[in-house]
Amino acid sequence: MNTVALAPPRKRRHLLRNSGFLALPLIILVWSVADPSLGRELLDWVPYLASGFMMNIVIALLAMTLGTLVGTLFGILELAPYRLVRYPVVAYVQVFRNAPHLVLIFATTYIFPFEIVVAGHYLPFPDWVKAVIGLAIPASAYVAEITRGAIQSIPTTQWEAAKGLGFSQGQALRWIILPQCLRRSLPPWMNLFASITMGTALASLVGVHELLHAATDASTAVRRLDFTIVAYLVVMAAFFMLCYPISRLTRRLEGRFNAA
């Protein structure tokens, strides 16, 4: 197989990929134009659906931030030389990596209180925050595994070399090991990001006002079969337009790092 033979299909594939990216929105657009009463109905609901999708994005971003912070710490602790530290962390990672996201969202929604008392003040603890925690728990377990894998992939000799240069263990981790880990763990981290983003749709099942829930509200109010179908297409298109670029970028990064 030489590159000359590959060139034309690759170009064609590129075209196919980009047209595929726009296929869902196009279907929605064509349908709305073909049936103007449907299009008008949909247009009325766009702001409501958009506010739902913002919620998905907010939940995903916060869950990933929280999950990454906790997960990185746990990943390092998984390699701690003390059993008393290591065992609980390993158990946490095992249980929550294996637990269905949906079950964790159910658990946090129904088990956490709706408000917490901090120094005599009642702070509300809304559902979407519980969904953030419900998704941050598995995210942290995955990030811990990614971090541990990345640290272990750095040859031991580098630790020794750092020691030889007078770095303490903490300094070596901060200045030599972690920067390299960052690069190695970026692609799996981005995969996780896409997966958590899609997981936010599960929050609809506990009544969080996100896109899928908004779409159900809309189809309940409109009560038209064709509108229901379009509403689901809109939900799919929205997630696809968000996640597909992420996964393309991830693959490009993976390719570059593998080549390096």
Partner: peptide, 30 residues
């Protein structure tokens, strides 16, 4: 073969990049 690989590629991208719950609701209801 493009006629074999492109539909499968399209499906793979669609299923990987949309929530499974939405796919399930769409399949079951629509």
């Amino acid at each position: 073969k493009l006629w074999l690989s492109s539909p499968v590629r399209g499906f793979v991208e669609l299923t990987r990049n949309t929530p499974t719950l939405v796919q399930l609701m769409f399949s079951f209801l629509v």
